[in-house]
Amino acid sequence: MAVDKKKLIDLYTRTLKVRLFEEKVWELFGENIVPGTLHLYLGQEAVAAGVTAALKDSDWVQSTHRGHGHVIAKGADEKKALAELLGKATGSCKGKGGSMHITEFKKGVLGATGVVASGLPIAVGAALSCKMRGTKDVVACFFGDGASNNGTFGESLNMSAIWQLPVIWIVENNLYAMGTPIKLTCPSATIAERANGYCIPNTVVDGNNALEVYEATVEAVKRARQGGGPTLIECRTYRQRGHSRFDPAKYRPEDEAKEWLSENRDAVNVIRKIAIERSALTEKEADKIREKLQKQIDKAADFARNSEYPKPEDALEDVYAEAF
């Protein structure tokens, strides 16, 4: 596939933006101003970047408990996103959702969910809606390797296939469901091949390579828009850190972690190298993009820090469209 320079810059920028966003979240966590827990997207940035770069603004993504990256890559306002993580009234969910429900609906994010595998049925419905309303929009549904062991995986893949829905199933296989290795819970070598049982075309890509993810998604999106139904893309990737904020991930074998977390497999380094090798960017331009994004994220963090917390009684609002 011929990928133009502009798209390579886009892929680098998206990947890096998610990285810088998550590093900022980690920094804010260090300041002890992020309530609750965190499931950082660090390490998996290329998946969100590659998928969203293949979508239009009007297309949808369904996110997960590890959702910051999906939302930011889809174009959510980083100020509102960081404010949400801090539980501020200016957050995209007015401080009612936090890390696990970070969402900006107007940017095409159906929602982030705290229940593993609960996003798949919602993606089915959104894709059915796109089809019934004749919009030609598609839905990209992110979920982890762990979610592929839940009943909704079978139900939803099946429904998407019988109705030939415009949905792209994105498995972020980071090899662990919390601390349980996927090889203990999945009998096949790949998760992708499970889709064969539902007659869904599927593929496995390097989830640390935004370009590979992008190219696979473009093909899937094309199929979906043409009425060709769903596709499943398994993206092999790895968490930079543990499952949640206090998990040091000691259960991962040292050599495995060393290999996955090496400089040359790092999601940002991979796409930066490709973009430079293909003359889409010079080293200097790449650095300049980083500086610009860093400023943007720093500014967003200041906005979040300086925002007010919601009033306690705001807890009573937004249960129904109209209170009764």
């Binding site: 159906l110 049925p121 919602i122 419905g125 959104a126 809606s129």
Partner: peptide, 27 residues
């Protein structure tokens, strides 16, 4: 299309109704 038989998949029937509802349908 509008009176849609589904597989025996209650959680996805309900979830698909959610996804359709938030994107402009009235399931």
């Amino acid at each position: 299309e509008r009176v849609r038989d589904t597989p025996i998949s209650e959680n996805t029937i309900a979830g698909a109704a959610v996804g359709a509802a938030i994107t402009g349908m009235r399931p």
